[in-house]
Design a protein around this nucleic acid. Sequence first.
RNA 1: CCAGUCGGCCGGAUGGCCGCUGUUCGCGCGAUCUUUGUGGGCCGCAAGGUCGUGAGCGCGCGGAUGGAGGAAAGUCCGGGCUCCACGGAAACACGGCGCCGGAUAACGUCCGGCGGGGGCAACCCCAGGGAUAGUGCCACAGAAAGCAAACCGCUUUCCAGAUCCUGACGCAGCGCAUGCCGGGCCAUCGGCCUCAAGCGGCGCGGAACGCGUCAGGCUCCUGAGAGAGUAAGGGUGAAAGGGUGCGGUAAGAGCGCACCGCGCGGCUGGCAACAGUCGCGGCACGGUAAACCCCGCCGGGAGCAAAACCGAAUAGGGACGGCACGGCUCGCGGGCUUCGGCUCGCGGCGGAAUGCGUUUCCGCAUCGCCGUCCGGGUUGGUUGCUUGAGGCUCGCGGCAACGCGCGUCCCAGAUGAAUGGCCAUCGCGGCGACAGGGGGGCAACCUCUUCCGCCGGCACAGAACCCGGCUUACAGGCCGACUGGCAUU
Length: 132
Amino acid sequence: METLKTRAEFKRVQKGRKWVTPAFIMQGLARADAESQGPRFGFTVSGKSVAVEGEGGRKRGKAVDRNRARRRLKEAVRLTFSDAARPDLDYVIIGRAFALSRKFEDLLADMRRAFHKVGQPARSDKENNPAP
RNA sequence: CCAGUCGGCCGGAUGGCCGCUGUUCGCGCGAUCUUUGUGGGCCGCAAGGUCGUGAGCGCGCGGAUGGAGGAAAGUCCGGGCUCCACGGAAACACGGCGCCGGAUAACGUCCGGCGGGGGCAACCCCAGGGAUAGUGCCACAGAAAGCAAACCGCUUUCCAGAUCCUGACGCAGCGCAUGCCGGGCCAUCGGCCUCAAGCGGCGCGGAACGCGUCAGGCUCCUGAGAGAGUAAGGGUGAAAGGGUGCGGUAAGAGCGCACCGCGCGGCUGGCAACAGUCGCGGCACGGUAAACCCCGCCGGGAGCAAAACCGAAUAGGGACGGCACGGCUCGCGGGCUUCGGCUCGCGGCGGAAUGCGUUUCCGCAUCGCCGUCCGGGUUGGUUGCUUGAGGCUCGCGGCAACGCGCGUCCCAGAUGAAUGGCCAUCGCGGCGACAGGGGGGCAACCUCUUCCGCCGGCACAGAACCCGGCUUACAGGCCGACUGGCAUU
């Protein structure tokens, strides 16, 4: 599984198609250079986004929670992308609060559905502007 | 057994499936290098080419092996390291620290003491230098908050007398039947009772007490009055100018004495902080320095996003070469000069040219264009990057912190950021109740425990250059030493 490395790549994918679930937000965009093959993924989780409602107001997610949310999302992508993701797209997955508590099999189902939804309009884009 | 104090340690375990990353070994592929002193083969006169061998690098596959914490956290101190600044020293300013001795690379840390405070005790807590160097502040309350003063109170002198004292008089009251009349009872001239708890009219007395009037007074008392003394007591406060006791005094007061405290000086013990003791001082010198300040010690700044190296595109800078290089009584600067000037660069004016907006007009932009090279430099990449004031065992020195020596081990290095995801069993925690067992109770029942079921996914928390500390967070659990209490032998 190849990951996005630079800030510029992340900013670019932000313009792409978006799909929201309780555990994450997925964005996808066709890659400009056709150099590498297979899809690429970027993961991002902020402390604010995984904040948990507790006694005395919201509790900001600490580093442990952020890392754990990212790992679960990463694992879910790893188990689903080979047959669900489109190889000519870059994806960005943004963690949300339920990334920690959602059952893992539901997370996998969410992920497959998100790949389908994000990949669908990209196909029509490709028909309008065929890549060189 | 219960309660507690101190120190040390752990902080889920095992397995299955699928992953990430470092190191190392092997294999494969890729580009590069592989001698210019005889130094693989072949071709070539040669430059060189080609095949092979080897090397490091990159990628892939396979094997082996390592992979979060006690706080990785907060970023509060101290260092290493890097860059910047800086001739040395001192002073000033600013900041930090502050009992003494030791440990340490250093520290605001640690150890051992000292002093003060708390606890029955084990033990715990303390920013703990200087308040006779100076300045400031001390809210509220209180009379008064720093230099003595005096609200209540206490005492005294004078003055005064509603209250006080003395005297006189009067009244009330008391007494007198050994005062009279009256009255009553018994009765023989007479005797008895009655000054009222129950009875009329008069009279006498002045020891004590009461009231009134008058006069006098300061012995007592009083103060709506003036002055003086006092700080014992009351009250306020965090704090009120030493404490307790005896003496003393008009009342009091270190006014005097004893003990304690305080200050000064000496002696003894201790490296020292300090402790003990002797003498003197009659007690002034309140607190606050986490108020300014004084004294002593320490301190250059910024930080791994430090810093070094490699370096794409675009824009801009410089050098060189080629092409182009038109005007001016202009300005500035350089070079040459036969001093007439010539020439180059920059700028100004003018405007040719080129490009753009559809053309002219007009407007805007450029003032050279092209090529090669150089330096700086952003995205990015590499290094820094993990062997270090390092861990462990043993021995020695030291009360200890710690030091020394021998041996042994290598123990995370990610960078949109690895060290994991999911599941099962056990463990843990909570809840439930059928049943069995133990304890308490007359009983209802309560409680502990075993088994069972369900639930929770299970404390605080994720390395980011590295060490030494501090602080803060933390479910549950283990070990050791010690203290107090109860019970038993």
